[in-house]
């Protein structure tokens, strides 16, 4: 079913894509996260994330559409990378 749910989260960082508006690195300040019928991925439903710069009008985006299963794997990978990286940069790497 089409949903109108959008989770919005403020970000600090940059993104780069191949679309006209984001062919170069640009700052991004917001992510819109949703779960609905995708536009491109051959799935019934997909986890969509749009990275935008709301302060600049939010017209351009970097977009991804992921299956629910792989989106959850991505969440784990992000958490794992952050955990390991922060340990290492704190000089606490056990390896």
């Amino acid at each position: 079913m089409c949903s109108y749910i959008v989770e919005k989260v403020a970000l600090y960082g940059s993104a780069k894509g191949s679309s006209k508006g984001l062919a170069e690195w640009k700052s991004v300040d917001t992510a819109h996260v949703y779960f609905d019928h995708p536009y491109h991925a051959p799935l019934d439903h997909a986890l969509g994330i749009d990275f935008i710069n709301q302060a600049n009008g939010g017209q351009d985006r970097i977009a991804i559409e992921l299956s629910a299963e792989t989106a959850r794997e991505l969440v784990k990978a992000i958490t794992a990378a952050l955990d390991r990286g922060e340990m290492e940069h704190a000089g606490l790497n056990q390896y």
Binding site: K8, Y39, I52, R61
Partner: peptide, 14 residues
Amino acid sequence: GSPDDCAARSRAKG
């Protein structure tokens, strides 16, 4: 914008 970008903008507005 492309139809998918326009859909994303509409979604963000509810």
